[in-house]
Nucleic acid binder design. Structure first.
Length: 634
RNA sequence: GGGGUGGUAGUUAAGUCGGUUAUAACGCCGGCCUGUCACGCCGGAGGCCGCGGGUUCGAGUCCCGUCCACCCCGCCA
């Protein structure tokens, strides 16, 4: 074996051999991808991270090499010295290296391998469970190799981009002080301080603000974050953010640097020039903008969430005004809501209950059978909806097959039809009740219908979205600063309490907290939240007023966030920042269906690592050393 | 925390109304084959039917519980 590696160094990656290498003597190292034995001669497709190359073993040419090829099996690790030759008429147009093959002159078995649990190729239908158990095999598959290497290039371009713009990369602690609010924290027992715990940082939020106070001016970090919440296909307990903070900037400045990064990444990774779709627009204020912006309020009204997928229609229409104007329109289910508005119990500008409709145009609605409509009702019920009122629009605009049809007044029907733009054959779907519930149901219903009706391009390797340029970016801006607390009466910070209120909203802080907007923003791509951030509150007076609304007194604020507040008192520059979800960015750039496909060693929906077996129980002695007792029976 | 789907050979699946020896494809092993590239031909091995209880003369199949994975809601920036 000493000859290979010590004397014979690799000269080429298998997957990169081309016609230009013909007649060269090469040394290749790789895995046996496939072996075809013809008795006299043997073909082996040798695989490395760059791809496959066909190696031909001929006993007439090299008996020693042939013996290796004869013995070799799937996934054995080989070294081959050989000569590249033209395959002539025998070329394989399906392979990038298909015009050439390597005639083996000398070969070595570095290692044998057990029969692989599943084939090392794309488009396998093996359970994800099996794939995660043997992740080292899964990662050998070309698609995951590509994803992991693409991710590496994303790190590289991201760091270069920020370095080019004068950003300083700083590491912040992972073991941090527990701060209340937001996501649940993972806790780490502090052995040197019995009974005490560190929290794993859910983000470097407070530290990056303090780096601004420290004067670093522009901060970047590609950083792991930890949140102990329930998981999804697009959520992991540990994930990576591109974390950014800048001093002496406004919202436009932050958008500018992020838009440039995104444009650069799409150019470098996909070769797509996003500026064709999103050319620079210089506003009256002299600021250059690329991506469109939408106010939070408009997004909720039209799409029911703050991350609209604008690649298709099926927008929502708020019909609460029509409901009020027609006193419930004769529909018993709707009348109580109208009465609440009439009596003044509900405000029109901040309604507690609303009535929304969604129109499925006739050409798409025709494809939905009665049974499928009933299934839709099941779909919304699993999200807590009481039902899914619907109506088919008749020739004269009348409602058919509808629970509202019997009693709805003609004027109300007409008003609703007009608001929705309803035409004959259209299907109308309605939802009414508490605002947040209606929005959740309608937003999910819209996405569900979009997929079902084929209005959203398929995600995955077969997707052509990077070719057709269906990359739909959007900034969602100006959300409310506060939302109702769990009790429905108090106020809680919608983002975090250090977000700067909108200039025009300051007078509402005490009068009408629900109306206060703020400098917070999310970057959305094709309905996926890529990241978000805010301009921070650096005025101690306004900060005090915000805490007052939240019911946090000075002592409590000091106890919870003392270190940040102290920092802000010592000369804090105006600052703001953003964090982009790197995993999601990779997912979209590699057009993967799951976050797990862009993370080398991901965890399952219960947060376990099927390969290593984490988390696991520990010995009583280990707990004792940490002064921790488990409540679970061993 | 709630709902849905699934777990049978190494892998992916079939398995009817509860009834003889649990099927198939791919993979694997052996033999043959010098131009294959989804190589081909002949032969063969391979099973705790997720786990634990129950019903029954008899359970892969029915019932109860439990574990695991995936998807959705809640939760989560």
């Amino acid at each position: 074996m000493a000859r290979f590696i010590d004397e014979l160094k690799r000269t080429h990656y298998c997957g990169l051999l081309r016609e230009g290498d013909i007649d060269r003597e090469v040394v290749l190292f790789g895995w046996v991808h496939a072996r075809r034995d013809h008795g006299g001669c043997i073909f082996i497709d040798l695989r490395d991270r760059e791809g496959l190359a066909q190696v031909m073993f001929d006993p007439q040419i090299a008996a020693q090499a042939f013996a290796v090829g004869d013995q070799a099996r799937s996934e054995w690790v080989l070294g081959v010295r050989g000569k590249v030759r033209d395959r002539g008429a025998m070329r394989n147009p399906k392979m990038p290296t298909g015009t050439v093959e390597i005639v083996a002159l000398e070969a070595v078995v570095f290692n044998k391998a057990e029969t692989p649990v599943f084939p090392i190729e794309d488009d396998i239908d093996t359970n994800e469970e099996k794939r995660l158990e043997h992740r080292y095999l899964d990662l050998r598959r070309p698609r995951l190799q590509h994803n992991v290497m693409t991710r590496s290039r994303i790190y590289h371009h991201t760091r270069n981009h920020f370095a080019d713009h004068g950003f300083v990369e700083v590491e912040t602690p992972i073991f941090v002080k527990y701060t209340p609010g937001g996501a649940r924290n993972f806790l780490v027992p502090a052995r040197l301080n019995p009974g005490m715990f560190y929290a794993l940082a859910e983000s470097p939020q407070l530290f990056k603000q303090l780096l601004m106070v420290a004067g670093f001016d522009r901060y970047i970090q590609i950083v792991k974050c930890f949140r102990d919440e329930d998981l999804r296909g697009d959520r992991q307990p540990e994930f990576t953010q591109i974390d950014v903070e800048m001093s002496f900037v406004n919202q436009d400045d932050i958008f500018g640097i992020i838009e440039k990064l995104v444009i650069r990444l799409w150019k470098e990774i996909h070769g797509v020039d996003l500026t064709q779709r999103y050319p620079a627009v210089v506003g009256d204020d002299g600021v250059t903008r690329h991506f469109p912006r939408m106010k939070f309020d408009e997004s909720m009204r039209r799409f029911g969430n703050d991350k609209p997928d604008m690649r298709f229609g099926l927008e929502h229409v708020d019909l609460t005004e029509q409901l009020i104007a027609h006193a419930g329109g004769g529909v018993p289910m709707l009348t109580p809501i109208a009465e609440k508005f009439a009596s003044g119990a509900y405000r029109r500008d901040l309604p507690e209950e609303i009535f929304k409709g969604l129109r499925v145009p006739a050409e798409q609605a025709g494809g939905l059978s009665r049974a499928e409509l009933d299934k839709l009702e099941g779909f919304v019920k699993q999200m807590g909806a009481k039902g899914l009122a619907r109506a088919k629009v008749g020739p004269s605009g009348e409602w058919l097959q509808s629970p509202f049809a019997k009693t709805a007044t003609p004027d109300f029907v007409k008003a609703v039809n007009e608001a929705l733009g309803a035409k004959e054959g259209d299907l109308l779907l309605f939802q009414f009740g508490p605002e947040t519930a209606v929005h959740t149901v309608m937003a999910n219903l819209r996405l569900h219908l979009g997929k079902k009706l084929g209005l959203i391009p398929e995600v995955g390797a077969k997707s052509k979205s990077h070719e057709t340029g269906d990359w739909n970016f959007l900034w969602v801006v100006e959300p409310p600063l506060f939302e109702r607390g769990d009790d429905g009466k108090s106020w809680a910070a919608a983002h975090h309490p250090f977000t700067r209120p909108h200039d025009g909203s300051l007078e509402d802080l005490e009068k009408d907290p629900g109306k206060v907007l703020c400098y917070r923003y999310d970057l959305v791509l094709n309905g996926v939240e890529l990241g978000g951030g805010s301009v921070r509150l650096h005025d101690p007076e306004v900060q005090k007023r915000v805490f007052a609304v939240l019911g946090i007194d000075d002592a409590t604020a000091q106890e919870k966030f003392g270190f940040l507040l102290n920092g802000l008192k010592h000369g804090a520059p105006p600052h703001g920042g953003i964090a982009l979800g790197l995993d999601r960015l990779c997912m979209l750039l590699t057009e993967s269906e799951s976050l797990r496909d862009v993370i080398a060693f991901p965890k399952t929906g219960k947060g376990s690592d099927l390969m290593t077996g984490a988390p696991n129980t520990v010995l009583p002695e280990q707990l004792a050393e940490l002064k921790v007792r488990s409540l679970v029976e061993g």
